[in-house]
């Protein structure tokens, strides 16, 4: 994972977890008491295994409900069933922890992560912005608010006359709303993965359709990617510059690649790259292949050049 040195500034992750980790679930917390034993002492053998299993997984604390036919195959209480470690249990912390009773206990792992930061990632698909910190309005994609607390105004943000002309001509236009006032706004869209990227005077290029929200203090402009031989004429991208945060959304978990002399990406799947990297269109011209038909479908690629430290973000989804 190259995220350590290539992300511009990894944002405030609650709990200092890597961005791909789910933010909920508190894997370090001791598992709450098992089902049906809210106040009873721990079940026999609780805590015996040297390698603790994921909380609650394969830990038969309470006897199965009567009438369930496979009861005889269940291992003795307190023992780990002899199965291979579950692949999803190794990575995901959201295995069903033995939960206490009640709504509050069941929903504990989905609690809001509270920090005093302006931008806080709540989980991999939700971002909270606190408008009180910094006091600047936030521009967000229209309709991306899912919840807010406090006194927040949502207003239309037009691109302006010139912006509409440029947006129409290049396809890099955003339907924005301005969130101003005082309070917290939760932003999400269509269950896409969100990645707040903090800019401290540097710049990043993002495809406009992958921008969810950004601080109004950031300047953005449409840039053209140099190249020739593209059927549509040219490729364009939105460049953000200044001090502030831009939230990028990707369909699925993205890959962040460092820019090397041989870094290529499909122009439909690449989402963002650091603006110091230079993007060049490298169309693969194969006379024979094109003449015979049977194209590979990978004709327009982007090649990236830049000093070490630059990165590109690619999503597993081609628009």
């Amino acid at each position: 994972m190259h995220a350590a040195q290539t992300i511009v500034a990894p944002l405030n992750q609650p709990g200092q977890q890597p961005p791909q980790q789910p933010q909920f679930g508190q894997p370090s917390a001791p598992p709450p008491p098992g089902y049906g034993q809210p106040s009873a002492p721990p079940p026999p053998g609780y805590g015996q295994p040297s390698a603790p299993p994921p909380p609650g997984y394969g830990q038969p604390s309470a006897p199965p409900p009567p009438g369930y036919g496979q009861q005889s195959q269940a291992p003795a209480p307190g023992q780990i069933p002899g199965q291979a470690p579950a692949p999803f249990a190794a990575g995901g912390a959201a295995q069903a922890a033995p939960q206490g009773a009640g709504v509050a206990a069941a929903l504990q792992k989905y609690r809001e992560a509270a920090t005093g930061q302006r931008w806080t990632q709540q989980n991999e698909k939700l971002v909270r912005v606190d408008l009180g910190v910094g006091g600047q309005p936030v521009l967000a994609r229209q309709g991306s608010m899912v919840l807010y607390q406090g006194k927040v105004e949502f207003g239309y943000k037009g691109a302006g006359f010139q912006g509409r002309i440029v947006g129409n001509a290049t396809g890099q236009e955003m339907q924005l709303m301005r969130c101003s006032g005082r309070g917290q706004v939760f932003l999400a869209e269509e269950g896409t993965h969100l990645h707040p990227i903090e800019l401290q005077g540097d710049a990043i290029c993002v495809s406009a359709e992958n921008v969810l929200a950004f601080d109004e203090t950031l300047q953005h402009e449409v840039r053209r990617i140099e190249g020739h031989g593209i059927p549509g004429g040219a490729l364009f991208v939105m460049q953000f510059q200044g001090t502030g945060t831009v939230v990028v959304k990707t369909h699925g978990m993205p890959v962040v690649l460092p820019v090397t002399p041989t870094t290529f990406a499909d122009c439909h799947a690449v989402v963002a790259w650091s603006a110091a990297a230079q993007a060049i269109v490298s169309s693969q011209v194969r006379l024979r292949g094109n003449a015979y038909g049977g194209s590979t479908g990978e004709s327009v690629n982007l090649q990236f050049r830049g000093a070490p430290g630059n990165f590109i973000v690619v999503q597993p989804f081609e628009v």
Partner: peptide
Amino acid sequence: GYAPAPVA
């Protein structure tokens, strides 16, 4: 690894 866990 995807086998169901014992019922609890």
